[in-house]
Design a protein around this nucleic acid. Sequence first.
DNA 1: TTCCAGGGGTAGA
DNA 2: TCTACCCATGGA
Length: 292
Amino acid sequence: MTQPARFRLSIKGPPIHLESLLFGHGWIFLAPHRASENRDTLERPLTLASGNRVDLRVSYASQVNVQGTSARPLSSADRSEVRRACRTMLRLDEDLSEFHRLCAGDPVLRKVARRSCGRLLRSPTVFEDVVKTICTTNCSWGNTKLMVTRLCELGDGHFPSPEALAECTARQLKLLRAGYRAAYLAEFAQRVASGTLDPESWRADPGGENTLAEIRSIKGVGNYAAGHILMLLGRYDTIPLDSESRTWIRKTYFRGRKASDKQLLARYEPHGRWKFLAYKFDRIARRENYIN
DNA sequence: TTCCAGGGGTAGA
DNA sequence: TCTACCCATGGA
């Protein structure tokens, strides 16, 4: 048994607020993501294109610091891929300056801008984010966590590749206990593995008609899931309403009374293409004392 | 047992 | 575009 190699690297980027980035969204609670006990480090395993398997620990102190172990010493291509994955997960390449200017005039959101909040954790690949999104539909959050944990068990602790998921037998899919979603996950994985669908290509044009059409072509992805995937791609002009967000907006702005989706969404209409971030951080800022 | 959970597909109007 | 009905699973 060889000792794992250790590595360390830092990543330049805009100022971020790591705690709200990690805990503002439920993704940190879905395997193989996890947080350190004191909530200041993102941890997850990652299989690189070279086949090298790494365990990452990502923290922040004026810059993003990555410490990790790898099965083999990192090649320069491996290092580049680790950097790219971290930039993607933390959304370091998104320009939020317009959102922050918008926040400055809002009594609740003001501190969100002051503390450089606005980024939300996502997965290193669009494939992983789509699979996880399908696992959130029509079930409790607890069930979602179970399904995703079982998916990672298929990948020996790592999130399975499209190829690995596409090759799953019916018996293995049954073990996911994903119900009717299992067939949707298998079909999506097969389309990606065969090259007929390239989710990574959506990053280049998250607002494009072709992107939206391809997202909507995935079985198991309806209105809510499509909006959620667009949000993960960095497009915030729609708020994907689910039972959870409906309940919160109704409670906060309608005194718990019944309201149509149109009425709920109207609350954030003035925020233009930043509607989702405005909703999300309105909610986070009201609830969490780590933004002050 | 029934109902609901961070909904979606399909058929029919 | 809207509605009714069905869909697997886990927890309350």
